[in-house]
């Protein structure tokens, strides 16, 4: 059984998925982030593979993608990192990125690398479902790799039904139409909060809400309408701004991670502390 399905069989509420950009802040943080998030209590991890032109992303994920590429991240390095943690990490993992990088890598090669590196699913926001169905669905399904599709607030019911028929694992419901990182500040702003009927009737297919979920309150809000939520930008921001956002809790985590760095030089422990600080804050 695919580990994403296992997860939703086991747990139907308050499922927390965390996105990070592979290669950020440092090239070799991938394994530390995965084990850090896993230990801290994330249920699902989305590993973003960076692209030079991420049009669906806001400034925070853009900047992390840019930095990751500067650090030298590419799909070969990422698959090696994932392979190295495969034996010790059991959390379900989803690869997320833009289609051109997959296309150049070779879709079949990408799928087989996913399968051998312990990847359970993929999200490719600019791969049209029609193209997926015609050209790639069979290969993904044969390899047991789940493909998850996005559903936007403006998606028509007919199209949502079509997307649901193609998607495996869960449906990715956008809280609002926009690029990543526009914060949801109140339930009324979250389109799914205003009008729960826009969540497609999923016949048992789990639904995760993403985009704009950034703190305990918005996570709880999303969990009232779906099986759980996906957090990306807020986590990247947490990784990026530990030094400068000025809040006491951030300063505390910062101090702790600095101590770890100075005393042990252990990047894994340092990242672990950062992940724990974030997830504790979200879970509340």
């Amino acid at each position: 059984m695919n580990r994403i399905d296992e997860l939703f069989t086991r747990k139907q509420e308050s499922v927390l998925s965390i996105y990070f950009t592979a290669g950020y802040p440092e090239l070799n943080d991938t394994t530390h982030l995965i084990s850090g998030l896993e230990k801290a209590g994330a249920d699902l991890i989305e590993i973003g593979f960076p692209f030079s032109d991420p049009v669906a992303d806001g400034p925070v994920i853009q900047a992390s993608s840019h930095q990751a590429l500067e650090n030298g991240m590419n799909l070969d390095i990422l698959f090696e990192q994932l392979l190295s943690i495969k034996a010790t990490s059991s959390i379900p993992k989803i690869m997320m990125g833009y289609f051109n990088t997959v296309y150049q890598y070779g879709v079949d090669r990408f799928i087989s690398k996913c399968a051998t590196s312990g990847v359970d699913g993929v999200i490719i926001p600019d791969l049209p479902p029609e193209v997926y169905e015609k050209e790639y669905r069979q290969s993904f399904e044969a390899a047991g790799i789940h493909t998850i599709f996005l559903v936007a607030p403006q998606t028509t019911p007919e199209r949502a039904e079509y997307l649901q028929a193609l998607t495996k694992g869960f449906l990715y419901q956008l809280s609002m139409s926009g690029t990543t990182g526009n914060p949801v500040v109140g339930e009324a702003q979250m389109v799914v909060g205003e009008d729960p009927s826009v969540i497609p009737q999923t016949n048992g297919m789990p639904v995760m809400i993403g985009f704009g979920i950034h703190d305990h309150a918005t996570f709880e809000m999303a969990c009232r309408h779906a099986n759980g939520a996906i957090i990306g930008t807020a986590f990247i921001r947490h990784l990026a701004t530990l030094e400068e956002d000025g809040r006491q809790e951030t300063r505390d985590i910062r101090q702790k991670t600095l101590d770890i760095r100075q005393e042990t030089g252990d990047r894994g422990r340092e990242i672990g502390e950062i992940c724990k600080g974030f997830i504790d804050k979200i879970r509340g």
Binding site: V55, P125, D126, P128, Q154, T155, L163
Partner: peptide, 11 residues
Amino acid sequence: GGAFIPEMLVP
């Protein structure tokens, strides 16, 4: 050609 766009642009 084609239309390789994220779902948000489909409408």
